[in-house]
Structure formats: C-alpha cells, structure tokens
Design a binder for these strands. Structure first.
Lengths: 228, 228
DNA sequence: CAGTGGTCTAGACCACCGC
DNA sequence: CGGTGGTCTAGACCACTGG
C-alpha cells in the first residue's frame, strides 16, 4: 500500500534497482504515476525530486524524467566546529593560541580572497588538542574589518568558534588534500617532517568580501567519514 | 515583494544573518510567517525545511523552529566515475588492469564487509591514467556472487564503471585520509615511498550484503573540492 | 506550441512531544 | 492535552524547452 511520498520513493527506487526502468530510460510522468499509485501529483513530485537530488534521476521540463545513466554518488559531509568534533569522540578539547599578528598574506592567499596584494591582515595560528594531545594545527588569515572594536579574546574562545557564532553565515569553498608535514607543522604536531597529513582548506565569503582563509592540518590518523 | 519559497528562504536567511533572530532563538511559527509574508503555509514550510536541511535551523514538532546555535556546515561532495572526473579536467582517461585473482581478503576487510573470514573473493588492481600519466591506483575486493556468469571483461571496461552501470544502487560509506605511499603504490604511481597521498575508501552494500570495498590512492597533488 | 515539471494555494488531518 | 511541524489533496497557473 502506497500512502506517503516515502513510499512512492521506495517503489520508484525498487523499479530502478530491479531495472524495470533501465538507466537512460524515460519513466512515466508525474500525472501517470500519481494515478497509478493513487496519490496526488504533489506527492509524486516530492518523491521524484528527492531522487533527483540524490542523483538517481534527471528531470527536465518537457523532456520528462529519466533514470540517470551514471548515477553520481553524492556524499554529504558535516563539518562541525572542532570542539564538537573532538567531544563527539569522547575526548576533551583544548587549544593554544600560538601566534597572532598583523602581516601581509602570501600572494596566492591574497589573490584567492580578493584582498589587495600588500594589505596587512590578521594572522592566527592555533593548536587544537584532544585529551591534551595534538589534534590539528590551524593557520588562518582573517580580515580584521569583520571584528568588533574591542577585539575578541582569541586566547579564551577559539577563532573558529567565535567566527561561527558571531559572523553572518556565508558561502565559501572547502578543499581536502594530503600533504607532507612541513617543519612547522611537524614541530607543532610532534611528528616527523614529511609525514602524510590530512589538510582541510576553507575560504569563507560574505556576500561580497572574503572574511577568512583557514588551513587545518590534522594529526596523523585523521579520517573524514561520511555515509551515503 | 515575497512571492515564492526562495524569497521566503532569502528573507529568513537575511534575518538570521542580521541577527534579528539570534542563534538559539525561537522564530515565529509557520502560520505566523505565512500570514506576514502573504503566502501559504506550505510555501513557508518549504523554505524553512530547506534551511533546516542546510543546518541553519532546528525544527521540532511542538517545540517550534530555532536558529541553530552552532550552524553545522554541510558540504555536498559529488563523487563521479573516475573517467568523468578525468575528462572533466580536459584530459583523456585510460586504465590498465594490473591484477585480477581470487584471494582471501585481509581480516579487517572481511570483517568490515561481513564476509566469512576465509572465503575467497575477487581482488582487482587497476591503474587509472590521465593523459597517459598515473592518476590513481585502485585496489578492490569484490564479491563475485554479484557478477554475471560470463564475467565482464574488466580489461575493457573498468570495474568502477561496470559496477556503477550494472549493479543496483545501494548504500555505503566513504572515508578520506592521507597516507604515506607504500612500496606498491609508490612503484605504480611513480612517486617516492612515503610520499603523502590522498586516499579514498568506499564500501558498498546492497540491502543486505557487501558488494565491494575499494581503495583509491590518488597521485600527488590531488585535491577534492566542494562548494558550500 | 504543447507537454512536462515547478510551484502555489487553501484546507485538512495527523504525529509528535513539550508542557 | 494542545500546539507545532509534517504531510496530503485537488486544483490551478506558470516556466521552460523539445519537437
């Protein structure tokens, strides 16, 4: 018995899996499916839209709905505040502010953020600890124009967390890579130079200008996991 | 003028950014917002549901809708077939099947997949090339029970691609990590042992049983990028 | 131009769960 | 228990775009 949109989705999914509807094939229109399942068209729409967002269907007006030829796997990553991430592992989080100074960012950084190439910005370096052991080495460039006049005490509240809770949500991009530990990260994290480390880079923009660029160099063994 | 659900979403987002609705605060109910914006409640619902999925709002029946205290950043990764990934970079994709044999998987692999610890499975090793240069080293364990009787010619069609197009869509998990190149990967990819490499691990299940476990060891310089 | 998906509406019922 | 979000319906109009 098909009642809700999740039932519709399940049935459509079954037909795709069973190859009743082969990859690339056109499936019946919303109206037809609504009639077949005995539900409203809006209910079918909800189900098909969900499958399309998952990458299993391709929908175009007038052209109809097709089973995706090469279903793109979409994985959703949750990127929590470091403190949450550490505490979720049952460890206690702490951090040390290693450096905070005004400086001119490297050209590639300034370029990506759309900052003037010789303008001084705030540079922050933080070591995050889990149960007192090095967890991640954070280096960050921050446009101080986005800070309130009495600057927040970043030795008490981590920059990461202050920004998340006090700066307007914005867009940005995230990149992941594997890098060999440089001298500084090796020293800070207590690993050998050249060790393979997982690096996260995030750029955050408000509607127009870049707020911050942060590199998070994770201690060895770090894995980023997601469910599909 | 607010007309569609995207307008509602934009306005709600504006109020969150402007801190008219502070983190943790209860926002008006759907009925109230619908009245204020002059739209149907379903339209408000669509907008708020979208923001909740994005991690900016927390919604609970009876409790109402609150602005998330620590907005979880959610990033959606698209994990294409390797051939698509390479071709999207404007390069030509090719591959070489380096090994294909029946063998007993290592205990951790068998364990994670729920396979009997001493059952033989199909082991496949593939080198993917972009413009003829090593792009990724793929090692895979595959349950041959999911293959048709005349086994597909994996020297002609990459395992990756055959599975995507011929095996029912399923669930699974994905993990990313940085690892030092072992002897084999170093040799195959033409890099020094110990080089920092980006590794993707995927486990794929049908409704009940595991189909395959694949490790993709990317050549140096690989970056996985996502937009938020 | 006509068919398909995208969306809106007004009203309704219901599941959940804080109070 | 009662309020809130979750969902369904029937009908409608519209945007897009393939033929």
């Amino acid at each position: 018995m098909i009642a809700g949109w999740e039932d519709v989705r399940a049935e459509v999914l079954r037909r795709i899996r069973a190859r009743l509807w082969a990859p690339g094939a056109l499936i019946p229109g919303e109206e037809a499916l609504a009639a077949e399942f005995g539900v409203a068209r809006a209910t079918v729409n909800r189900a098909l839209r969900d499958l399309a967002e998952a990458g299993l269907l391709e929908r175009r007006r007038k052209a109809g709905t097709r089973v995706a030829l090469l279903p793109v796997r979409r994985a959703t990553l949750e990127i929590p505040v470091i403190r949450q991430e550490v505490e979720a592992r049952g460890q206690s989080h702490s951090f040390r502010l290693l450096a905070m100074r005004m400086a001119v960012p490297p050209l590639p950084v300034a370029g990506q953020l759309g900052w003037a190439p010789d303008a001084e910005k705030l540079y922050l370096e933080t070591l995050h600890l889990a149960d007192g052991k090095p967890y991640a080495h954070e280096t960050r460039w921050l446009d101080p124009a986005h800070l309130p006049d009495p600057r927040p005490d970043f030795a008490a509240v981590s920059v990461n967390e202050w920004l998340v809770t006090h700066v307007a949500f914005a867009t940005g991009d995230i990149a992941f890579a594997a890098e060999a530990a440089d001298a500084r990260s090796a020293e800070v994290l207590g690993v050998a130079q050249g060790a393979a480390l997982f690096v996260t880079e995030r750029t955050t923009f408000t509607t127009e200008t870049a707020i911050t660029f942060v590199r998070l160099i994770h201690a060895p063994g770090y894995r980023m996991v997601t469910m599909v």
